[in-house]
Amino acid sequence: MTLSERMYLPAIAQGLGITIKHFFKKKATINYPEETRQRSDIWRGLHVLKRDENGAERCTACGLCAVACPAEAITMTAGERKKGEEHLYREEKYAVTYEVNMLRCIFCGLCEEACPKAAIFLQDDKLAPARYERDEFIYGKDRLVEPLKTTETK
């Protein structure tokens, strides 16, 4: 140590100088929830089950996403499409139930990658919200499937 370093004070003064400089600096804080931080377009947020351009569900319940899920958070039961449901389901097979356990889910994006029908997506603009009860985290089709009208606007 040099003599000035031994005396404590110069380094302390230097440190104080740095902190006082920051005192007057513009603050970096984002006032969540009033402001939200910009997220990247590929951010892996809350799941959504996409519809195609006609508003029919894309998912065919092939089960690849469930297989690909390292947390085993996805379950589904497949069903045969009946006559007259063509506008609802795109393929002949569809998911009767489709559940994601948001507590187990680790948002790794492997399901999105595994999906051959571009049906499941992790959207960038929504996050899984905090809730009070454990049961509320089993997201069924009612909460996963994209509402009809947004397909047209998007």
Binding site: F23, K25, K26, A28, T29
Partner: peptide
Amino acid sequence: KIAAFIQDRV
């Protein structure tokens, strides 16, 4: 407040 301001927070 001072701590926050020094640390670039609000």
